[in-house]
Simulated scan of single mutants.
Amino acid sequence: MIEKIQLQNILFLDIETVPCEENYQNLDPDWKVLWEQKTQYQRRDEYTPEAFYDRAGIWAEFGKIICISAGYFTLKGDIRHFRVTSFFGDEVSLLKDFNNLLNNHFDQPQHVLCGHNAKEFDIPFLARRMIINGIPIPQKLNLFGKKPWEIPHLDTLELWKFGDYKHFTSLKLLTKVLGIPSPKGDIDGSQVGHVYYIEKDIDRIITYCEKDVIAVAQVFLKLRREELLIAEEIIHV
Results as ranks from 00 to 15, higher is better:
F88T: 11
Y53N: 05
D90E: 11
E46M: 13
Q37A: 13
E36D: 15
A56S: 11
F62A: 04
W31S: 14
L75H: 04
F52D: 04
E91N: 02
C67Q: 11
D54M: 12
K38W: 07
P29G: 11
C20L: 13
A60E: 04
P49A: 09
F87C: 01
W31H: 10
D107L: 10
S86L: 06
A60N: 01
K38Y: 11
T74V: 12
N103M: 07
W59R: 08
L95E: 00
Y24H: 10
L34W: 07
D78H: 03
W35K: 09
F87H: 05
F87M: 03
L101H: 03
V18C: 10
I65R: 02
A60Q: 04
K32F: 04
I58E: 04
G77D: 03
F73M: 00
T17S: 14
K32G: 05
E16A: 10
F62H: 03
R55S: 11
K38D: 05
T17R: 09
K64T: 10
N100F: 11
V18S: 07
N100R: 14
S86W: 05
T74F: 05
E22Y: 07
E91K: 02
R80I: 00
E50G: 13
W31C: 12
E50V: 11
L101G: 03
F82R: 01
S69E: 02
I15A: 09
T17G: 10
E36G: 09
N103K: 06
E16F: 06
T85V: 09
R83M: 02
G57H: 05
A70R: 01
L75N: 04
N104R: 10
N26T: 06
D78L: 02
L95Y: 01
F106I: 00
D97K: 15
E16V: 05
I79N: 06
E50L: 13
L101E: 02
I65E: 03
P49E: 06
K38N: 07
Y53T: 04
N104K: 13
R80W: 00
V33G: 07
G77N: 09
H81C: 05
L102K: 00
H81T: 12
S86T: 05
S86I: 03
R44M: 11
P19G: 05
R44G: 08
A51W: 06
Y47D: 09
H81L: 01
I58D: 03
L27A: 04
K96E: 08
E21R: 15
D54R: 14
F106E: 00
D97H: 13
V92K: 15
Y47T: 09
E91Y: 03
D90I: 03
